[in-house]
Nucleic acid binder design. Structure first.
Lengths: 233, 233
DNA sequence: TAGATTGTTAATCGATTAACAATC
DNA sequence: TAGATTGTTAATCGATTAACAATC
């Protein structure tokens, strides 16, 4: 049976649905329509119905989706039935924030280890776990059979960390360092890259057209009077 | 002159090109082909050429792109010629990490203010700036004509912060809180949502097909023996 | 039954890939 | 000139939107 693998865009929306369902359930809402899910999520109702339909028929025509039932299905689809153990490499401000957030606010994930190379940070307590030297990571990865790892180290250390964790069995990396990690193709990397988000936001924060048209004017000038040389190397 | 607004996917790739060019320039590389940019970025060479072509003809047939020239163009396109002043709201671990990162590692951005509601954090020094109470934000936004704001507060406080900063003129928000912010349509919001990234990664970290097919089996069973009721409301 | 909302198919839109002429 | 690589047009692919029959 071919699944032709569900598209990445669909998968990225599932956690949004899950979060909304968790909220609705907390508020005691039992039924939700795709229309209301739409206004909560910002995705269109059609898209939501289509996304869910990839995995099954979870709703009831005429009324909507049972929140508890749908939540349970999405939890299964994503693979969150049991808590996912992870480690965080890098115990600076960002690594600390990530560790603490996941330990306290993310019920689907547990952090079983935090690591750093910096001796000054080793021994530091984050919530209930202690920062260990990077060399201890391999042991923990194997002990807990860790498949998912967060990397929050400086750009120049990230590849080395990726190599290490992948070597010991990690299959998915959430990378906060601004570098493209090179990993075997069976390993998944998601980049959570602040700089890229911020810069693309800056693009939209000022009048787009003006900037681009002044750029075009410049190009015209350059056409006639070459200022740059292209002949080295 | 219609620009039909360049697509978001293109804009998200520009900062990646910029980063690579910055690296290449630092290493003294003067010319780079789309092929080599491809291997550095992970995007295809065709895509890179097409992306750049939306804005102009920046390369030289037969040789490639002059790194300094192309960098300068991308800086102009994104709107990074002058440093962008920003503020960070939320001075917990994440807000502190973001503030420090941008102050020390991101030459295109300057943080002119950090704010929090928590009295325990007010007065705290992050690098060279001091955490101020949230009420002071409006003043700083107006004083520096801030257009871009980072929000790193807990989910339940994020909307209130968004309302405040938008009211005083912010046009672009990088939101780290796990909520959909409601803002006027001229305001841009990018969500940097750890939980979504992490959960979609978890989806890929274990055998997709097995999970989905066991889900399908369940659905079949449910078809005959209904376990859920849909008639409350 | 009438009203509502899903699940699914078809139509559209947009983005990526392929191909190649232009040109350094 | 021969070799290389861009810039651009055309072809393909994939994702979103629209429409509506199915059905609660």
């Amino acid at each position: 049976m071919r699944n032709h693998s569900i598209s990445k865009s669909v998968i990225k929306r599932l956690p949004v649905y899950l979060r909304i369902l968790d909220q609705l359930i907390r508020r005691g809402v039992e039924i939700i329509s795709s229309k209301d899910l739409s206004s909560e999520s910002g995705f269109t109702a059609e898209q939501i119905r289509k996304d869910l339909a990839y995995f099954g028929a979870f709703g009831t025509r005429g009324s909507g989706y049972n929140t508890v039932f749908l939540r349970e299905k999405i939890v299964k689809i994503i693979g969150l039935e049991s808590v996912t153990d992870t480690i965080v490499v890098g115990a600076g401000n960002l690594g600390t924030a990530l560790t603490r957030y996941n330990l306290t606010k993310n019920p689907y994930v547990n952090v079983v280890g935090a690591f750093d190379k910096n001796p000054a940070l080793i021994g530091k307590k984050i919530h209930n776990i202690e920062v260990l030297p990077l060399e201890k990571a391999s042991k923990i990865i194997e002990k807990y059979n860790i498949k998912v790892c967060l990397i929050a180290v400086p750009a120049d250390a990230a590849q080395e960390v990726a190599d290490l964790v992948v070597k010991h069995g990690v299959k998915a990396i959430l990378n906060f360092a601004p570098v493209k990690l090179r990993v075997p193709e069976e390993v998944h990397v998601h980049n959570a890259d602040l700089t890229i988000e911020l810069q693309s936001l800056i693009y939209y924060s000022s009048a787009e057209e003006e900037r681009l048209s002044s750029l075009k004017d410049e190009m015209k000038k350059n056409k006639s009077s070459k200022t740059f040389t292209y002949n080295e190397k």
